[in-house]
């Protein structure tokens, strides 16, 4: 039998990792099935729902539209990499305080996408936040509390940075 799996070396949430995958496998599948990182969710597999939002070298991408071999030599950040030690990321904390999740399945994607927003623009307006997060679908909340949580996290992160 010929070897069909590709060997990929990458960095995930700050740690060097290696894994085997098929050439046509998505990064989403590799994360969830190969690496056990199931915090990244699959809602559509067509890049339309944002449930699988991750950062690839700091850039926000849907993991369902990235091939697993593309992670070679790059840095991947998933929801599992956001909290540090025993402290939640401010976005995670604000989602809890604002009741910004109901079923919670879109929540990891929203938090990762919102982190990318705040990394790029620490003080976004409501409109900027709404358009940045327009690639993430939530069917439970009507977005109101999500937007409030992100804006509140932004202002708190700004304060603590001073």
């Amino acid at each position: 039998m010929t070897v069909t799996k590709l060997h990929i070396e990458t960095t995930i949430n700050g740690e060097p990792r290696e894994f085997l995958c098929d050439s046509h496998e998505t990064l989403l599948s590799a994360l969830r099935n190969g690496l056990g990182l199931t915090g990244t969710k699959e809602g559509c597999a067509t890049g339309d729902c944002g449930a699988c939002s991750i950062l690839l070298d700091g850039r926000l991408v849907p993991a369902c539209l990235v091939l697993a071999p593309e992670a070679q030599g790059r840095a991947v950040t998933t929801i599992e990499g956001l909290s540090s030690g025993d402290a939640l990321h401010p976005l995670q904390q604000k989602f809890l305080e604002h009741a910004a999740l109901q079923c919670g399945v879109c929540t990891p994607g929203f938090i990762v996408a919102a982190k990318a927003l705040l990394d790029a623009k620490p003080n976004p307006s409501e409109d900027e936040t709404r358009y940045w997060l327009a690639g993430n679908l939530c069917r439970c909340t009507g977005y109101d509390k999500i937007i409030r949580a992100v804006l509140d996290a932004a202002s708190e992160m700004k304060e603590s940075a001073i």
Binding site: R32, N33, G36, L37, T38, G39, T40, K41, E42, T78, I79, E80, L82, S83, L88, L91, Q92, F95, L96, E97, A99, L101, G104, V105, T107, P108, I111
Partner: peptide, 23 residues
Amino acid sequence: TRPIRHDGVDKVTGRASYGADVV
């Protein structure tokens, strides 16, 4: 009152297990 939901931390950290999350 508005306490933080008990299942919340698992859901904002990606630890909560949904239908497709188990092996």
